[in-house]
Design a protein around this nucleic acid. Structure first.
Length: 680
DNA sequence: TCAATCCGTATC
DNA sequence: ATACGGATTGAC
């Protein structure tokens, strides 16, 4: 360590020159004399440059005039490689490790310490875990500044803690103990299988109340906006007003920053939100929770592509906080946390599950279709049709889950069944409405006339029937029964307790007042035939989320799933055993060498760039390359597979290789993703 | 011998 | 990105 030099720029600065600078030819403003702050004159700054080889802090001198504003966590502007860039102060320190002159911090943007020590540590760990740069993570973690909001008067914190309530947690044998531990400032970790019909937002709100009772704060993450609205309402109901904020991406910059600042300043201690809220800088963090961690909305689409579940697990670990992963279904990742002993299970006993769940029956492809004319055109198996008819007769609504939106989202040749492709870009053709001219789903060009390249036929038929056409057909099959649709841009939150057919795409199912009388889960084959590692897990997740909205079997609740009864995933739904399914799934993946039993990295870019990065990455001998395979538009994708315990070494090697490439000014970027959701 | 230019490397 | 240092080139 060396002491900071007394003056910047190698001693050439006009330290002793009085304010009246000599007039040059032009009225060029000379920098006024600056001197380093008296104590801790060095600011260690994370500069906002995305280059991998610059992913480390840089030291600057704090001029005495900025001594008060340049604090750990505050935003600054500094000169870096000749240009002014944004930065965030990581620390104020006494001396520098840098042997060379230090530049001064140019400007303090504000004295607000936006980066808390906990989030600074987390951001570094996230960058390391996902082979990214700190800068990239900070862009995800710290929202853009809004100066006016920052200067608004501080809102008052609501004092005291709300009454803790065991509420619905007593339905789970280990639930009350979990809540008690939170109230005692301990940090239990659990994977929670929510009972069908349970009001999960209320359960999360009760958990938040327990954390508050212990004097700590919590972060609660849900997949989407609709879930957040429900959680927001439950938090208000259980905690009272002013004790939490809802953080969503679409709030607008001012409101977003206002709520975020309330968390950062400690005015509120409970932060609920969608995936970006996983970084919410809650003070004295007691708990992180995530609902329905299998939802792919929790995967961040921006570099370095962290997944909110894994990020929260990491955060709980670093901060010594409790963790709760709740869902109706269960992911293999959550099951792995249980198996490794990192988390305990919170599950109801079999009897409770049985009495809460609807009765589930399978109607596979070989089931005869209904003889009813309308029902046949709606491709309802007899069982589904009868179930709908009988349920509607009792006065209850029926939920119809259709895997795909639109009208006919995939068309094929009427004669040979081969998929219909766009003549220009080879994208899939789809029809938007009955009798509408088909159009390409990629480029939007209409295909007024079409000839099958395989057999020469020129008539199209629907390969996949979408929700819109299903609604139309159900209307004919059940004349006089209202049909409501939910999906795409128009998602219904709830429907009344009256006879209706409610057609929804997965994730857009409205809740029914008093529960649905029945749910028909159509076209299971369409869900299960996609070439994806997670198809079965994802199908069970979607089915369970829909079936959880149906009344218990004892109250007449019925579910018909349109898939082969012999499939293990269908059996898991029939028996309502998501934990058993996840356990078997995890074992299978371990045998086949798939995540989460092993770690994967995916490198995407031009073939040369991918090859170069793979060559530069000093990976362990047990790291296995798979591919590369074409990934469209002149790019390739290479997968690297490593044993689970070598995951961080793999990430480190890839980041180091990316640093070599960025230092060489390599032109073509390579996208590096750890644990990518899509493997094939 | 010196200045203009090129290239590589560090960026505090 | 840009800026700087050292090497290289070319003209006198």
């Amino acid at each position: 360590m060396t002491a900071p030099p007394a003056s910047p720029a190698g001693g050439s600065a006009p330290a002793g020159v009085p304010g009246a600078a000599r007039q040059g030819r032009a009225a060029r403003k000379r920098p006024e004399a600056r001197e380093p702050a008296g104590r801790s004159p060095v600011a260690r700054v994370a500069v906002d440059v995305p280059l991998a080889h610059l992913d480390r802090p840089f030291d600057y001198l704090v001029p005495s005039g900025l001594d008060d504003a340049v604090v750990a966590g505050s935003r600054v502007r500094v000169r870096f490689a000749g240009q002014l860039v944004d930065g965030i102060v990581l620390h104020r320190v006494d001396r520098t490790d840098h042997d060379g002159p230090l530049a001064y911090v140019e400007r303090a943007v504000s004295a607000e310490p936006v980066l808390s020590p906990e989030i600074a540590r987390l951001a570094r760990a996230v960058a390391d875990r996902w082979a990214g740069s700190l800068t990239d993570v900070l862009r995800l973690a710290v929202p853009p500044r809004h100066a006016r909001v920052e200067s608004e008067p501080l809102g008052a914190a609501v004092e005291g803690a709300p009454e803790p309530v065991a509420g619905g947690w007593s339905a789970y044998p280990t639930g009350p103990a979990f809540l008690r531990a939170l109230g005692d400032r301990r940090s239990p970790r659990a994977v929670w299988s929510a009972l069908p019909g349970d009001a999960w937002p209320a359960r999360l709100a009760e958990v938040a109340a327990a954390v508050l009772a212990g004097g700590r704060g919590a972060v609660l993450v849900v997949p989407d906006r609709t879930d957040l609205e429900r959680l927001d309402a439950a938090l208000t109901a259980v905690l009272g007003p002013g004790r939490h904020v809802a953080l969503a991406a679409d709030l607008g910059p001012a409101e977003r920053y206002r709520r975020w600042l309330a968390v950062r300043r400690g005015t509120v201690r409970i932060a609920a939100g969608t995936r970006a809220a996983a970084f919410a800088p809650v003070a004295d963090l007691g708990l992180v929770a995530v609902w329905d961690d299998g939802d792919d909305l929790l995967a961040e689409p921006r570099a370095p592509y962290p997944h909110a579940r894994d990020l929260l697990v990491l955060r709980a670990h670093l901060a010594g906080a409790a963790a709760l992963l709740g869902a109706h279904a269960r992911t293999a990742e959550a099951q792995q946390l249980v198996r490794r002993g990192w988390a305990r299970e919170i599950v109801a006993d079999r009897g409770t599950v049985r009495s809460a769940a609807p009765r589930v029956a399978a109607a596979g492809d070989d089931d005869e279709l209904s003889r009813d004319q309308g029902a046949r055109s709606a491709r309802l198996p007899t069982l589904a049709w009868r179930t709908a008819r009988d349920t509607l007769a009792t006065g209850a609504p029926v939920l119809v889950q259709v895997p795909r939106g639109g009208y006919a989202p995939a068309l094929g040749c009427a004669r040979c069944r081969s998929p219909a492709r766009c003549a220009y870009c080879s994208g899939p053709l789809a029809a938007g409405a009955a009798g509408a001219i088909p159009a390409c789903r990629w480029c939007g060009r209409p295909a007024a006339s079409w000839t099958c390249p395989t057999c020469g036929g020129n008539r199209l038929r629907a390969q996949v029937v979408g929700a819109a056409r299903t609604a139309e057909e159900l209307g004919r099959a059940f004349p006089g029964v209202p049909v409501r649709s939910s999906g795409g841009d128009s998602v219904l939150a709830a429907v009344p307790a009256e006879p209706a057919l409610v057609v929804a795409t997965p994730g857009a199912e409205p809740r029914a007042d008093g529960g649905y009388g029945a749910a028909l889960l159509l076209d299971g084959w369409a869900l299960l035939t996609r070439p994806d590692l997670r198809v079965a897990e994802e199908a069970l997740r979607r089915w369970a989320n829909a079936a959880a909205l149906v009344r218990p079997a004892g109250a007449g609740g019925r579910v018909v799933v349109g898939a082969d009864a012999g499939l293990p995933v269908v059996q898991a739904l029939v028996r309502w055993d998501p934990a058993g399914f996840a356990d078997r799934e995890l074992s299978e993946r371990a045998e086949l060498g798939f995540p989460p039993a092993v770690r994967f990295a995916s490198l995407t870019g031009t073939p040369e760039a991918v090859a170069e990065l793979a060559r530069l990455a000093r990976v362990s001998p047990s790291t296995e390359p798979l591919g590369p395979v074409p990934a469209g538009e002149g790019t390739e994708r290479l997968l690297l597979r490593a044993p689970r315990e070598e995951g961080s070494a793999l990430a480190r090697a890839l980041h180091a290789a990316a640093a070599v490439r960025s230092a060489r000014k390599a032109a073509d970027p390579v996208r590096v993703q750890l644990d990518p959701l899509e493997l094939f």
